[in-house]
Design a protein around this nucleic acid. Structure first.
Lengths: 281, 281
DNA sequence: GGTGTTGTTCCATTATTCGGAACTTAATTT
DNA sequence: AAATTAAGTTCCGAATAATGGAACAACACC
């Protein structure tokens, strides 16, 4: 019933006001749509279905207004209203996403290289993109284990404690990086999670030099990974590939051996992007 | 570049006007949101990224208006505008969907029973819901094969040529069924696809009596399935479970043997719904 | 039958969207 | 290279849709 750590994982993140000293505030108003998206965010980020009153207190809108907004969302299939008057995410979202995923050019280019990497190492391979302050996982290739699909794909994870996230951040120019980190809320998931922008910055500088990143159980205890960055030539697109697995099986020595394969996969994906999307980008 | 069979697969379907003699027209106007959703539909249903002009001709809006609408969608992350001025579905859709899927109550209830059914038969098991004239697949459990997740999940498939679809339709009262079929555009995917509402109606009457449905290579040549219906007590929620596989492996005799297991799985799922969601529904 | 809670409908006011046209910018032709 | 066409962007008065307060139903819990 309670809301989950909404702010920490929010893709958008700056709905209220970012305590950013810089004058350059990102574009904000999308009028009617923006307000509706806030509601969609609220409902999809909640731990379970929300009643009208719950949303009322969270959204702080007048009752009449909120009621009409929710009705519209329900009518469009973006939300669903069950028999007990509780609002849940709508199935139309699934349909949109399935199409968006199936046709995603970047993912299609990367796919064969992810499979190669999975087979070479036997461990789970992820593909992620930096979007705002979050990493969105675009694909995942696992070994033989009983399929639990969708598990990670589409999930927005924090950028400061994942391999792909840190690899992507290392591509940013120093200034943008500092700006971005200023807005990040550092939640400590494990003992190894970076707790401050300063300590993260230091590691990212290192990663930028080396060209690869580790996740030393920073997001989830017992889970490690190696990641390599991926970027478009115009740097509008930042992401990464990673190999992930349990710490008992993936020693740091083994991870170090996988640096080269991961980097090679990243390079091949970038080569594919140049060919498919044109050399300029 | 061309549009795919947009109308046939559309979840919404009645944007213009349904040739429905009945006075009870379903609610329609969602104002600003509705117009934006039409655009989202256009872009997500296209075969590839669309340029501004493409959308302009498809949407039939004034240029200035369309431009602002697309800008808003892009700003919210629902669409993405690449360097070549082409619009593609945005990644935010993935994030929404991942959450919507992970927390879907019906899916969570059904999951263990799907796994059981998969292990009992060794073939692929699907869970689907009727939404408008389409079946939306909510889950899929496969055997050992190399994982290609997301493949089917979230996809909207026609109701008239899938096992789950026909099973779900068989739950509708005769009147609603006729109304619904009046709006369906019967595309012949294979030689076995029902071509008219009449022939479909005849089979659905049979299915309603029997309590299970076959798909005899009606959607895809070489693919068969058995399905059993699932419904909430108040009949607001209709769907089904199915076992799907290649015709060379799944003889009609074998499928007939699986009727009982599929029905049992469906019953257990419904029992779970009664317990979790309250007896009324 | 009251009384508080929750959800829905109504309508004048206000703010946003609409859409034609003028204006850039890029591509194509002469 | 200049001229021409196409493609995309910005502007602003008019039209429309969103707003939010208040009054109205539905339901539970005393």
């Amino acid at each position: 019933m309670e809301l989950s750590n909404y702010a920490a994982l929010s893709v958008k993140g700056d709905e209220t006001m970012n305590a950013d000293g810089d004058g350059m505030a990102q574009a904000r108003e999308t009028g009617t749509l923006g307000k509706l998206m806030v509601l969609l965010d609220l409902v999809t980020h909640a731990d379970g279905p929300l009643r009208f009153t719950d949303i009322l207190s969270l959204a702080g809108q007048p009752r009449g207004t909120l009621h009409r907004q929710l009705s519209h969302l329900v009518e469009e299939g973006l939300l669903e209203l069950d028999g007990d008057g509780r609002y849940a995410p709508g199935l139309r979202l699934l349909d949109f996403a399935a199409r968006s995923w199936a046709r995603n050019e970047f993912r299609l280019i990367a796919e064969p290289h992810l499979v190669d990497l999975q087979q070479a190492t036997g461990e789970t391979v992820h593909l992620g993109v930096l979007r705002g302050q979050s990493i969105i996982y675009l694909d995942k290739v696992e070994g033989r284990q009983p399929v639990r699909m969708y598990s990670q794909i589409g999930n927005a994870s924090p950028c400061y404690c994942t391999g792909v996230g840190k690899a992507a951040l290392s591509l940013l120019p120093a200034e943008s990086l500092v700006d971005l980190l200023a807005g990040v809320n550092f939640t400590r998931f494990t003992a190894a999670t970076h707790a401050t922008a300063a300590s993260l910055l230091a590691e990212i500088r290192e990663i930028a030099d080396q060209g690869y990143a580790f996740d030393r159980e920073e997001h989830e205890a017992g889970i490690r990974c190696v990641a390599a960055p991926i970027w478009s030539e115009d740097r509008t697109f930042l992401g990464g590939v990673s190999i992930t697995g349990p710490a008992y099986r993936l020693s740091m020595e083994l991870l170090a051996q996988w640096v080269v394969p991961v980097q090679r996969a990243a390079e091949r994906i970038m080569e594919g992007m140049r060919i498919r999307l044109g050399p300029r980008r």
